[in-house]
Design a protein around this nucleic acid. Sequence first.
DNA 1: TATATTTGTATTGCAATACAATACTTAGTA
DNA 2: TACTAAGTATTGTATTGCAATACAAATATA
Lengths: 300, 300
Amino acid sequence: MTNASGRLTPLKPKTGTRPGKKINETDVPNYINNSEDKSENSSISKADSSLFVGSVEKGFSVLHAFSRSRKPLSLTEIASETGMGKSAAQRFCYTLVQLGFLERDESSRRMRPSAKLLELSHTYLASNPISSIAAPYLLQARENSGEAVNLALPMEQDVIYIARLSSSNSHILHPIVGGRAPMFCTSSGRAYLSTQTPEDIERILDASDLTPITRHTITDRAEILKRVDDVTINGYTTACQECIVGELTIAAPIWGADGLGVGSVNICVTRPAWTEERVIDELAPIVCQTAHNISLALSN
Amino acid sequence: MTNASGRLTPLKPKTGTRPGKKINETDVPNYINNSEDKSENSSISKADSSLFVGSVEKGFSVLHAFSRSRKPLSLTEIASETGMGKSAAQRFCYTLVQLGFLERDESSRRMRPSAKLLELSHTYLASNPISSIAAPYLLQARENSGEAVNLALPMEQDVIYIARLSSSNSHILHPIVGGRAPMFCTSSGRAYLSTQTPEDIERILDASDLTPITRHTITDRAEILKRVDDVTINGYTTACQECIVGELTIAAPIWGADGLGVGSVNICVTRPAWTEERVIDELAPIVCQTAHNISLALSN
DNA sequence: TATATTTGTATTGCAATACAATACTTAGTA
DNA sequence: TACTAAGTATTGTATTGCAATACAAATATA
């Protein structure tokens, strides 16, 4: 209900005032994301320029519905998940099935994401050199530590993981690539935050939902800022069980050629085999060295 | 030019005959992809049901443009790559930038795919258990072989790789996940083909572009079919330098609970350290065992 | 087995949206 | 400074996407 676009009353007049529009009062092109009204309520709704193609957004919003509930969804479930009407849901599901991004089980009539979505991630990975550049150093870090190593980039108030090397003795592959986690409570996020100006940090924290995820999640702003400052002092920061109980992580920031923060490397271990002290003793040098090497490699 | 939708003459009449349409002569629902007219010429154009939302397709076609040329693209390049007009390209680029799937470099004004695309792959991986189920066996295979292990699923006339474990001593991470390769000239593809009926195999080969990729690519249908048959006899098949010069691969099929082929596992090594004989001697048992274990795990 | 209810599918008129055309602006070159 | 090419903004038009709705199929209930 209460679709984010405010499409509540069907047939609302909305007298066709599209042509005419407000005549670009500023001198900054429409392209710039000059919307400070971020994240209204749900996922949908972004821009309202006359250039914006709403159907594209709706298509992605159907796909996004599957990242919340990870089960196959029926048409009506998709309609209610996305806040679209049944007709619209029907249209977009039909389209996405035709395009191959959703698969339909003919007996249950439920849809689920198809492997074709991986093609899109491949498009990103193949056209963006960062993960290839970082790869050798990440592999080295995994070899030196024996533990899981991740590469993360900032995305709004979150970090998004773009590469993962699982620990040498792991027997599962955590599908973390493409996953997001809040900056404020991850070592990756705090490492990245340390590359930002105090104003930007404030802005990101303001926009963050500081609800604790585990009972160890640090939500006190002063304490978060202190941990971010730690990076400037020591070169790394840790987060212990703040996202996942039993998980300890340590991260260091990656800098780009332009002197701006790019993302971060983190190493990820579990209790009780590891303690925070041991993480700092053994992994801090590795994670710092790795981040440093990647930063250098990015500048060449 | 000659956009696949036949949108050649601007302002062509196309007298508004949309409502009315042909009244579903068959009894098979519109959802079923009953179009045999596959892959006309370029990438665009699929269905023409009144349910189909063309803008969604166009959005994806813009993203797809980046998988051909892996560099950042300007607006006009995107327009010509996709066959859309400049206006349409503008709209879809604007939309995709707003949604965060494309990033704009303000100085060069070029766009490139953003890491947010990885979220979509995560949606797939998280809602589809196959890669998690297969993971322990793939890890085991990598441990036993020390070499790169891949998991592939069929997609039209190609296979798409949905998981990759790089070889123990590799210092690069080949971004192969989400990548596609033709079935006819890959060991993975042939292993999958062996699970299909002769008619389906013929159909897939008919639809395939049998142009050789390297000078070792086998394009003779009888020879391809023989290699596919090998799987039935021996449980595995090989492909040597047919896609990448210097690369030898061996694959075995994965079967689902319903007795239908699901995909395949392959192990991937390089010359001159390896020869086809050594691959068969040392890796065939591993790849067969792995595929068998995954098939069993999928049935439980 | 019949009836009710829910879910999926198909159709249609309406109007809002996406488009081509085009004018305008900026950047890059001569 | 003019010239050219590329990017950006605007607008009328009609195509497209939508809600509403009718129809069908499946599932639940009696």
